[in-house]
Nucleic acid binder design. Structure first.
Length: 270
DNA sequence: AGAATTACCTGAGCGC
DNA sequence: TGCGCTCAGGTAATTC
């Protein structure tokens, strides 16, 4: 489950490795992801040059001469740059062939990933058009969260995981940022003060930025041929239900919120 | 409009 | 060793 930091680290690695290179071929092994891969992708991509690699939330945006290839890694997807001679495995769904015998290979066992094409601005694509602000950019702050939260009835954790509220905050970082800001995941948004909303916005920005920094530091300079890993040792609460809180030593509690695994410290988080 | 539910998919972990 | 079961989870589509 690549979250925003992993997607950003991938973006940087691919931009470094592939920007300016020409796409020489496309191999699609199945169109049947959760949403079908556009069948005319080979025609659209063949011979085009990669101009830049961007990101919106957890969507990777590859700008070609004639439009944008949009890829979401879903739960289990990853992208690697490999020698073209590398045999394809069971879950290798898409290869983009570049010069120098390199392929950009999309692999996704659970097929929750998404491959789209946009002829124009990718932000206008229907699946991206309604996304909220980028958490690491201007426009996402405590005031914004506070204003938005007045009329919402879901738990605050569900609020920040809503992509129309803020882009790219998934389950792991929602848990982590709520712990950092000392807020219970089940809190009603309209109960949050301006100060609490501010602390939450800061916490979200911090946990994401720190994870990107850490991921970048360990990133293989030549682009990992192994999928990027998470940094499970760094998580303070995610995956640690029943274990001691790093801050107070009390036992972390695990509940379900919106059918998502939710971990918090009942002592530290109010 | 916002909230809740469903659907998609397969590896991993479990009990037996 | 292998079978059957349950679970995990991002997000689009659908329903309430």
């Amino acid at each position: 489950m690549p979250e925003l930091p992993e997607v950003e680290v991938t973006r940087r690695a691919l931009a470094e490795e592939l920007t300016g290179d020409r796409l020489q071929g496309v191999v699609i092994r199945t169109l049947k992801l959760r949403l079908p891969i556009p069948s005319d992708l080979p025609v659209l991509l063949q011979g085009r040059t990669l101009q830049e690699v961007g990101r919106r939330g957890k969507y990777l945006l590859f700008r070609l001469d004639n439009g944008w290839l949009i890829i979401h890694l879903g739960m289990t997807g990853h992208l690697r740059v490999l020698p073209a001679s590398m045999a394809a495995g069971k879950h290798d769904h898409l290869d983009l062939l570049f010069g120098g015998g390199r392929i950009l290979r999309f692999t996704d066992p659970r097929k929750f990933g998404t491959v789209l094409w946009s002829g124009g601005e990718p932000h206008a694509h229907p699946l991206l058009a309604d996304m909220g602000p980028e958490p690491l950019e201007e426009g996402f702050d405590g005031e914004y969260l506070h204003a938005l939260s007045r009329s919402r009835s879901v738990a605050v954790k569900q609020l920040i995981m809503n992509s129309s509220v803020v882009a790219g905050v998934g389950n792991i970082y929602a848990n982590e940022s709520l712990f950092r800001s000392r807020l219970r995941p089940s809190r009603s948004p309209h109960s949050l003060s301006r100060e609490e909303c501010g602390a939450l916005a800061v916490a979200i920005r911090e946990v994401l930025a720190e994870s990107i920094l850490q991921g970048s530091t360990i990133m293989n300079f030549r682009v990992a041929e192994e999928p990027l890993r998470y940094h499970p040792l760094d998580f303070r609460v995610y995956g640690r239900g029943g274990k001691p809180c790093f801050d107070c030593g009390g036992m972390l509690e695990e509940i379900r919120l919106g059918n998502r695994s939710t971990v918090f410290c009942p002592h530290c988080q109010k």
